[in-house]
Amino acid sequence: MMNNPRALYQEVILDHNKKPRNFGVLENANRHAEGHNPVCGDHITLHVKIDGGHISGISFEGQSCAICKASASMMTGQVKGKTVVEAETLIQEFREMATGKLDVNAQPHHLGRLTVFAGVSELPSRVKCAILPWHTLHAAFKDMGSTSTEKDF
């Protein structure tokens, strides 16, 4: 369990913040959603291509802090190729981990490498930064168009 925010930063930032994966516009995407955190100004757009219940493509763009960008980058890598149902499970588990409700060391989950974000639960003011991409992915699935960290699922 990572509970040192400095360690969280080093793990996540050094890689995904500098070289975000799946960053940019996705041709042929059939779902789009915008996520906005009015508290800090994080703003991301997700482009998702869903084929027969599978996420065949996903990308993101926007302007955000390192925690949000790294979370979005890793999320796109993790959900690509999965079904929407599987991704919804990850959304739920990620939220629970980030808010401290899921102890990734003691309870079963499917988060894999995403557990590097467990430490964010120690930073209440930054939890929403980590969750925003997942929130936005949920909005894309529901075809909600846009969402905000100030809205509940």
Binding site: P5, R6, Y9, C40, G41, D42, C65, L123, S125
Partner: peptide, 22 residues
Amino acid sequence: DIHPHDIGTLLDQEGIAVRAGH
């Protein structure tokens, strides 16, 4: 290109309280 919220969180680890945001 470091987001101010990242600056704020890391300064906080040094005991330094600043505001980050709009």
